[in-house]
Amino acid sequence: MPALHIITLVKWVPDAQLERGFTAQRRIDRTEGILGELDEHPLEAALQISESLSDRQVRVSALTIGPAGASAALKKALQIGADDGYHLTDDALAGADVSATSAAAAAAIQHVRSLAGLDAEYLVLTGMASEDGETGAVPAQLAQRLGVPALTQATALGIDGARLSVTRTAGTRQQKLACALPAVVSVTDQANEPRYPNFRAIMKARKKPVTTFSLAETGLDAAAVQPKVQLLSAAPRPAREPGEIIHDDGTAGRQLVDFLQKERLL
């Protein structure tokens, strides 16, 4: 069997547990961030596939696109278990929409493959959505640009010989799909329980290589990553005002129905 190169996309995102907002340029404020929690699941999936293919050479690479701070996401990915890290950083990518992100990612993946110099099949794994953009549309756009299938929202995945199989839920149906590599797969938080890096893994990660490159090195120019969507305005949603709070005096159930009736919700 040829070697397998699993390239996992990871994103440095503002911490969803903290207050998030926009800059004056109507871009998401990225002064601080963390490795997206949802991006730990594709990493774990990559490591599990690697462990399941003991007779095959498997390389797990983590790729991030973002400002200098995004190297923190790569560092975490290497601690979790990726073999090497790649960081595409370029000012032309500030304010990237789905189109710009997928164009940059497609070029970056080809660049990473050539840098890795493996004669390998490849598989791209992503999270189910980024915690900031939340579109979930990048995997399919990336697959379109690479000319490969996109099996998204995987709740389970595995490689058997030359075939990749994915279990997913689509509306009210559960599906099992299969395709040959290469492919793009987005992995949900139901697929696995990501491992915590132990002390040894953290020490080991320090020696793992990280390669930083610019858009020009991938062969793209700024015109190829022009957003196709223009943001006109971004305003904080007015805070919800707390309403009436009652303590149950034995009639709260009836008062609830009164409230629903008054609000015409019955």
């Binding site: 907002g21 926009f22 957003p227 943001l231 305005s233 971004a234 305003a235």
Partner: peptide, 12 residues
């Protein structure tokens, strides 16, 4: 941002 902001946008 999980309902914290409302945006308007249009295609280019």
């Amino acid at each position: 941002l999980a309902g914290a902001y409302t945006t308007s946008a249009q295609p280019v």
